[in-house]
Design a protein around this nucleic acid. Sequence first.
DNA 1: CTATGTGAACAGCTTCACAGCG
DNA 2: CGCTGTGAAGCTGTTCACATAG
Lengths: 224, 224
Amino acid sequence: MPTGKPTVIPAPAVRRLSLYLRELENLLAQNHRTVSSRQLGESLGLTDAQVRKDLAYFGQFGHPGVGYRVDELIARARHILGTDKTWNVALVGVGNLGRALVSYRGFIKRGFDIVAVFDNDPNLTGELVDAAKGLTVEPMEKLPAIVKERSILLGILAVPASSAQQVADRMLAAGVRGVLNFAPVALRVNDRTAVAAVDLAVHLEQLCFQVSSLIKSADTNEKV
Amino acid sequence: MPTGKPTVIPAPAVRRLSLYLRELENLLAQNHRTVSSRQLGESLGLTDAQVRKDLAYFGQFGHPGVGYRVDELIARARHILGTDKTWNVALVGVGNLGRALVSYRGFIKRGFDIVAVFDNDPNLTGELVDAAKGLTVEPMEKLPAIVKERSILLGILAVPASSAQQVADRMLAAGVRGVLNFAPVALRVNDRTAVAAVDLAVHLEQLCFQVSSLIKSADTNEKV
DNA sequence: CTATGTGAACAGCTTCACAGCG
DNA sequence: CGCTGTGAAGCTGTTCACATAG
């Protein structure tokens, strides 16, 4: 028997799928029943062809002459991304950023529940970090037990760069399969594990480059 | 006279330049004098050819037989990205995330200084958000004056999705030329302005997709 | 002999344009 | 008609392989 889905999906298409999903949820909140590839593309700065091609990678769920049914497409996108069920997440590092992430409401809305919080600092152990959930800070020693107990597959790393690799290693040893890394270092992990990185300074830096380019080209046009 | 630098630089190369710079600063801290394209690539999961090609877009600053001088390359990369001088930044939205970003140490290290903080909520006005800098929360009405006064070109948006567009509009009207958007919506801006977006839930979602793929392919291999 | 810089080959992604369906 | 799905074309980015410099 040949493979059921032979096509390999381009990484950029997967990234955009998240954005489509976000936009679709906004549309649903505004009571839109259907949306065309043109509308969806416009709101994200993409062409209609791009949207159709992307969605076609994941299956055929458009309706010619009508567009895409919003609720249907949301369900499909969630299923493809894996967020049609809630994922339990562990967070390590109770600094300013860690605390903000624990109380960030956007996660639970999209299928992620931070169910355990760890820190190396014994002074923080037991501190209540989320009153609504009754979440308190656990010591790192408890990581393996809690990860297994609560079926945690995803981890958020909000520790300083200097300890990021070592904490990541402990997460993987405990059974975590995906790490969202906020520390400004590249992590080394085995090929059974996925890593996504968010470097806040890098994002500002990229913005800064874009702004510099804008300013420079404005100057040039002025002189011409 | 023809254009001095005819080549247009690929966006992925610019993104990677930030990562090279970060890695180079780590190397400098470890007292490395030079680095080869192979070494630099390995630490970031890239090929040596990719690194050389990227750096060549920005100029010729390698030394055949030796590699790249770390301090020299850092200076060049900073100059290209525009972070060889410090940028003043305004932050809007003093929620959990906003507070965490104000006290994030990673920004100043890389050339970004949050010099003003705003919030819509009058109850927050005057609150001290950064003791070291003596930064207090300003009301939105003061945005235009303070942006001009402190030569602010970059803004960080840490407000709810529902008010993000409107706050962005006010930032642009005040003279901000680049916006780093943490709200989960696509912003509409004029073409004189740059936007970079960080959607925390989207990053987790992408991670989740990768993990699902890993688990799925492991299952498949097991059966074969 | 080591390591860069770069044309040329290759791969992958995006855009085009249109057949086909509701 | 309107709008999707999709081969084919076009374009952009990556990898290769080697001339060249120290």
